[in-house]
Simulated scan of single mutants.
Amino acid sequence: MRAPQLRAPADLGAPAGTRTVRTTSGDGVPLVGVHVPAGPAGTRGLGFVVAHGFTGSSARPDVRRVLAALAVHGDVVALDFRGHGSSGGTASVGDTEVADVAAAVELARGLGCTHVVTVGFSMGASLVVRQAGGAPGSGGAAARPDAVVSVSGPARWWCRDTPAMRRVSWLCEQPLGRVVARGLGVRLGAAWDRVPSSPVEVVHRIAPRPLLVVHGARDHYFTLEHPRALVAAAGPGAELWVEDGMDHAESATTDELAGRIASWGARTATPAVVPS
Rank of each mutant, 00 (worst) to 15 (best):
A59S: 15
V66C: 10
L67G: 00
A68H: 07
A69I: 09
L70C: 09
A71T: 13
H73P: 03
G74E: 03
G74S: 13
D75Y: 07
V77T: 00
A78S: 14
G83F: 01
H84Y: 05
S86T: 15
S87V: 04
G88Q: 10
G88F: 07
G89I: 03
G89N: 03
T90Q: 15
T90K: 14
V93Q: 09
D95W: 09
A99Q: 00
A99F: 03
D100F: 08
D100H: 08
D100V: 11
V101N: 02
A102H: 12
A103H: 03
A104V: 11
A104M: 13
V105M: 14
E106R: 15
A108K: 01
R109H: 08
L111G: 09
H115N: 10
H115V: 08
V117I: 06
G120C: 05
A125K: 04
S126W: 01
L127K: 00
V128I: 11
Q131E: 15
G133Y: 04
A135L: 08
P136Y: 11
S138M: 08
G139W: 07
G139E: 07
G140C: 14
A141N: 03
A142G: 05
A143Q: 01
A143D: 01
A143C: 08
R144E: 12
R144N: 08
R144P: 01
P145V: 02
A147R: 04
V148Y: 00
V149L: 05
V149I: 10
V149F: 03
V149H: 01
V151M: 15
V151K: 08
G153K: 00
W158E: 14
T162S: 13
T162D: 06
P163A: 09
P163E: 08
A164D: 04
R166D: 01
R167F: 13
R167Y: 11
V168Q: 03
V168P: 00
V168L: 13
S169H: 15
S169C: 15
E173F: 10
P175Y: 13
P175K: 10
L176A: 15
G177F: 04
R178Q: 14
R178P: 04
V179T: 15
A181S: 09
G183H: 08
